[in-house]
Amino acid sequence: MTIPINWYLLVAAGLFSIGLYGVLSRRNAIGILMGIELMLNAVNINLIAFWRYLDPVRMTGQVFAIFVFTVAAAEVAVGLALVIAIYRNRDTIVIEEIDLLKE
């Protein structure tokens, strides 16, 4: 018996929601970043599952996933550089404490 595609999509939806919860509930910038990574992983599960079940001969889904990997890596590099920069400037990476910009 093969696994129906819906199961994979359900796992992806769960992972996406968990990641979103992490993003919304964390105070720490790196914690938020981890939530975002979970969301991107959910996207990739979706893409690969759709590729496998709907379009396995062409490689569109896999190519898309590879670009997601690439961008995720670039994003994390930039994001962590920003985290380090803000830590140098402000000695904290708790988002609520980073509050120079309010009138």
Binding site: S17, L20, L24, S25, G31
Partner: peptide, 19 residues
């Protein structure tokens, strides 16, 4: 340190709803 912000409960409900 508390790693959770004040509106985490809303976040949880929102994420659950989305799921």
């Amino acid at each position: 340190l508390i790693q959770r912000n004040a509106q985490w409960i809303w976040a949880a409900m929102g994420a659950a709803g989305l799921f």
